[in-house]
Design a protein around this nucleic acid. Structure first.
Lengths: 164, 164
DNA sequence: TATGCTCCTTCCCATAATGGTAAGGTCAAG
DNA sequence: CTTGACCTTACCATTATGGGAAGGAGCATA
């Protein structure tokens, strides 16, 4: 099976298959006399495994560890589970960060007229979060029931650290 | 104000300040005779603006557009709001992707013994999602009430596209 | 004044994972 | 034998940030 076929049947781009080989994630396959890579069904299986791991948000290095666990027939399922749950916690931390951003922005957008006037609490927040928040709180003061949202907004500001 | 001071008071690393200058995100500041960059309080303000935008998950190019809107005193707040809401939708799409991953993995981990035995549905799913899901469904068949979770799991498989 | 410490400068390299492109070789069918 | 689809390697780009080297500048103290 040529690399193009392997790519189609595994769902991993040919470019990526070569890359995975170059970093030692998969073994170099046998070659034809002309130098064409030839993949076995075991190779395809490994590629599908990697593809699925990537789809579940594992990094390539994590996929490497999962492959090692997969091949180690004597691994304890506890090790795999711990590895997976560590990843779940990573995912949930990222989710929480994104939710904080989203909520802060939604809140700011709510207080924005969204008409032809230039005055905009979103830009005001970017220019000076403390002042903008004060303004928003004052505007919303008559209605107390959304106070929770404002607290969420505060939390979002003290968290941060994104897109590293 | 030297770049070190500017970094400290704006929260943007000196390295990043130089980088932002190099890509034209901020204007090149005046220099001392010795070539040291000297920043004004307006510069610091812009840096804080960028920092805040980044904290809210905007890319550098998006921060550039926000800066332009900020400086355009005649912009309509509707434009800013639309821009912010577009970003909120982006964030929420990413959140949904991560949640699908997290839920699928949590579900798989739930069906994993997590003891010293090697048998592990998590690795089974990675090796062959269809078979692993069948196995999990069979194991859970006696208890019907968690069927929703399995559907979510299915969705996770058809979504994908992560870490670009 | 000489030494030393901290800060500044530019330049280059590295990261993670993928896409693109170019120049050239191969295979199979017409 | 030509053509088109496929393969090969090699290099460059992306996003945002960090690290480090080599050398100059500023300031304080012995």
């Amino acid at each position: 099976m040529n690399i193009g076929q392997a790519a189609t049947t595994s769902g991993v781009a040919a470019k990526m298959i070569r890359y995975y080989e170059s970093i030692g994630l998969i073994q170099a396959p046998v070659r034809t006399e002309a130098g064409y890579r030839v993949y076995s069904s075991d190779d395809i299986h490994a590629l599908r495994f990697i593809k699925r791991a990537r789809t579940l948000g594992f990094s390539i290095e994590e996929a490497r560890e999962l492959l090692a666990l997969w091949r180690d027939k004597s691994r304890a399922s506890a090790d795999v589970k711990a590895f997976a749950m560590k990843h779940v916690r990573d995912l949930e931390m990222k989710i929480a960060e994104l939710q904080a951003m989203s909520q802060t922005l939604r809140h700011l957008a709510q207080t924005c007229h969204g008409d032809e006037r230039p005055d905009c609490p979103i830009l005001a927040d970017l220019a000076d979060p403390a002042v903008a928040l004060d303004t928003a709180v004052k505007k919303k003061a008559p209605r107390k029931e959304r106070h929770d949202a404002e607290c969420t907004c505060d939390d979002a500001k003290s968290s941060a650290s994104v897109q590293h």
